[in-house]
Computed example of a mutant assay.
Amino acid sequence: MAEAWMLQVQGLRFAYPECAVLQGVSFTSPAGLVLVRGDESSGKTTLLRLLAGELTPQAGHIALQGGAARAGGQVFWADPRAGQGDAVAAQAWLDGLLAQYPQWDAAALAAHIDGFALQEHLAKPFYALSTGSKRKVLMAGALASGAALTLIDEPVGGLDKPSIAYLTEALAQVAAQPGRVVVVAHYEALPGVPWGTVVDLPG
């Protein structure tokens, strides 16, 4: 019996005015971890934005959980290049996620704050955080959200070795959660992470 799919992407195409980025991207994934792998400018972030509904595909189809609408706290996407409300404190931003995600896991958030050594940074506004600390806050929120489709872009940017080691452990734990697909965009596979599906984007 084939494993039930949770995320299905068929014939996805998207082009910016100056260049085509994605041409006929297709993949199917059950619950677990998906690695979107590619070089710089291969369209990794664009694919995440399409999955999040932030961009509209020019062709193709995206389905989550057999066609359920991507709404109601089902999708988590926080672009690490965006401001996230630069003057908002990290703790306040995390607190605001509770009302957005019905499957929010407070115990998981506490574990991620500890694992990423974030406690001393939570009172700081986003503009005062380093690149690595900001990414860790966003990933702590993403992993704790319980969202059926969780999207994480370039996870190790600015991270130190202990934080990368913790991220590997955290992703392995999320991989075992039923009813959840976590899509990670990165230029290579992170060692020790049990990727269920790997999507290679041409350069």
Score class of each variant (00 low, 15 high):
residue 3 E to V: 12
residue 5 W to C: 11
residue 5 W to Y: 11
residue 7 L to N: 02
residue 9 V to W: 04
residue 10 Q to S: 15
residue 14 F to W: 08
residue 14 F to A: 09
residue 21 V to D: 03
residue 21 V to Y: 01
residue 36 V to A: 05
residue 36 V to Q: 06
residue 37 R to I: 01
residue 41 S to Q: 10
residue 46 T to L: 04
residue 47 L to I: 09
residue 52 A to T: 05
residue 53 G to K: 03
residue 55 L to D: 01
residue 57 P to G: 05
residue 61 H to G: 12
residue 61 H to Q: 14
residue 61 H to Y: 10
residue 62 I to E: 05
residue 66 G to K: 05
residue 67 G to S: 05
residue 68 A to G: 10
residue 71 A to K: 09
residue 74 Q to A: 14
residue 76 F to S: 09
residue 80 P to N: 07
residue 81 R to P: 09
residue 82 A to E: 15
residue 84 Q to R: 08
residue 87 A to H: 14
residue 88 V to R: 15
residue 92 A to V: 13
residue 96 G to K: 09
residue 97 L to E: 07
residue 98 L to C: 14
residue 98 L to Y: 14
residue 100 Q to F: 14
residue 101 Y to N: 07
residue 101 Y to F: 14
residue 104 W to K: 11
residue 105 D to V: 05
residue 108 A to K: 10
residue 115 G to V: 00
residue 118 L to W: 07
residue 122 L to C: 11
residue 130 S to G: 11
residue 133 S to C: 09
residue 133 S to N: 14
residue 137 V to M: 01
residue 140 A to R: 01
residue 140 A to T: 02
residue 154 E to S: 09
residue 158 G to N: 14
residue 160 D to P: 10
residue 161 K to F: 12
residue 163 S to H: 08
residue 174 V to W: 03
residue 176 A to M: 13
residue 177 Q to W: 14
residue 178 P to M: 07
residue 184 V to R: 03
residue 185 A to W: 00
residue 188 E to K: 04
residue 190 L to N: 02
residue 192 G to D: 13
residue 201 L to E: 15
